[in-house]
Design a protein around this nucleic acid. Structure first.
Lengths: 147, 147
DNA sequence: AGTGAAAATTTCACTCG
DNA sequence: CGAGTGAAATTTTCACT
């Protein structure tokens, strides 16, 4: 699936999504057009989904980062998902194993704000709220291998 | 702190980190050098931490995405963090509220692989392993406002 | 996948408010 | 000091091999 060159290209773009293709080319030992072509293919294949800026949300006016572990009541999973999706403070939400479980990451401006959000979700199930204290491992890439 | 223009710039770079500054300039109504200057300042201030490619890890040879909620034994938090950091399969790890708690995200190639990793962490505390079934909300930005 | 030229973007020096 | 302008430098894209 992914040869050594694709892996290296992906790794470079994961480290710095704004790197010049010419620079990628130099590091993988190909020409710029060859790299452009490979990246276009990786995007088409859905391996590369997009490019995002990593932000310091705390510096953006959100002093609180939290995670909810939501266990919804029977048959309420989809309603809970709809609610969670509608909250702009939510930055990610995954369904996980465990009966009707959701793992939700969100930002809030204050404890009162977080409480108010949690309250809305409580209508759909039990919510275990965890406040993120520190990022110990920043976004990184697992080793890519499989052919 | 962040004026309307900075917010718009951040939002555009979060949507697509490889957008041309010239295009950002057009969308915010400034010149390209003015935008370049603002982005440089946002980086210096630590508001923008970096730019990353978003990848489909499942397509990269990792059929399993999992989350651990680790509650470490007394005085073992830092040892657990050191172990978790040393595992290349781990892509993020946060300390969260709750006594000695860690929230860890990782990728594995098989259930056996995941088990083998979990086993190592079990030495430091109790581990609740959740397998990610579906991403319901993909990486998005909370509304930026605060001045 | 590479080459070389054309097109586009980024960067720089400089000017203006 | 932050923003605009135009030219230079760099990067990206395209046709062709």
């Amino acid at each position: 699936m992914l040869d050594k060159l694709d892996q290296k290209i992906i790794s470079l773009l994961h480290q710095n999504a704004r790197i010049a293709y010419k620079e990628v080319a130099a590091q993988v030992g190909l020409s710029a057009p060859a790299v452009t072509e490979r990246i276009a293919r990786l995007q088409e294949r859905g391996i590369i989904r997009g490019y995002h800026a990593e932000l310091d949300f705390l510096a953006c006016g959100y002093p609180l980062e939290a995670v909810w572990l939501v266990r919804t009541h029977h048959q309420q999973l989809f309603a809970a998902i709809d609610l969670v999706k509608s909250l702009p403070e939510v930055v990610s939400c995954d369904t996980v194993t465990g009966e009707n479980c959701l793992l939700v990451r969100l930002f809030a401006t204050s404890v009162a704000h977080l409480d108010q959000l949690t309250y809305q979700v409580l209508a759909y199930g039990e919510v275990n709220t965890m406040i993120v204290k520190q990022h110990v491992v920043s976004p990184r890439l697992p080793p890519l291998q499989q052919p």
